[in-house]
Design a protein around this nucleic acid. Sequence first.
DNA 1: GCAAATTAATGATTTATTCAAG
DNA 2: CTTGAATAAATCATTAATTTGC
Lengths: 146, 146
Amino acid sequence: MSMVANCSSDPLRIRKLRMLATAGLSSYIYHIMPQRRSHPPTNNHCLKNVADQQKHRSGSRWNPTREQLKELEEIYKRGTRTPPAHQIQLIAAELRRYGRIEGKNVFYWFQNHKARERQRLRRQLEADSPPENSNRQDLGAVLTPT
Amino acid sequence: MSMVANCSSDPLRIRKLRMLATAGLSSYIYHIMPQRRSHPPTNNHCLKNVADQQKHRSGSRWNPTREQLKELEEIYKRGTRTPPAHQIQLIAAELRRYGRIEGKNVFYWFQNHKARERQRLRRQLEADSPPENSNRQDLGAVLTPT
DNA sequence: GCAAATTAATGATTTATTCAAG
DNA sequence: CTTGAATAAATCATTAATTTGC
């Protein structure tokens, strides 16, 4: 009894893997997220081990713990961007120490973190660059009474 | 007579600008802070144009006027976070209406305001989330069925 | 009430990152 | 792999609040 989280076996998200399907990553991604997000609000159609859910209310969506986030950022800072499957497993296992977490969460976290950082940088560059004839030179002149 | 604020012409902080000394903002920052903080306690060795100083005494460190602060916060509230050089110039010019202010002051103000808002928010969130600790080893089996 | 002493805010610098161009 | 551009985070330093002894 218990321990059954299989919910109609979602049709693995293979479509979206086309972009990553070149290197060894593909297969690993395939394995990593065998089930799609399946908790719209709080409806349990299938049986699910609710007891295992952390204090984090409901089992709708993973939310990183302080410690988890800290470690993830640490790993990221050390250069990891798109960890291979085995490393994802290791990380997830390690972080499970601090609370509920799955491999797919780690995977998504890295994806999102990387993407958002790039996005942030891009927006900044865009905002900072004047239309065209940027006269940064005279800027100094104005900014400082010389 | 009067109008001389030159105090031994501080040796521009070039050393530390190596990282920024190439283009764009860099040169502008270079121009922006020609003199380092140079008012230890309250000693005036050199003559200084006090008349030009706003009601705010001394010229050691910029201190926003009530009006200046109000406008800055207004601009911030409207979404501006890292204004581009030209906008900094505009803001500074506008605020000069209320008292002494330079581009670098605007620049620093936004930097600090943004950073400290984030900081406050983070501390809040951190304070709100409880210690949170628990090991659910068995979870792994369910969550990542290999 | 009022300064000296202490603490809280915040302006200004320095350091450590990020992505991506070369 | 190295380096340029540009912060944002961390830190330093000074000013304003405030507390305290008289």
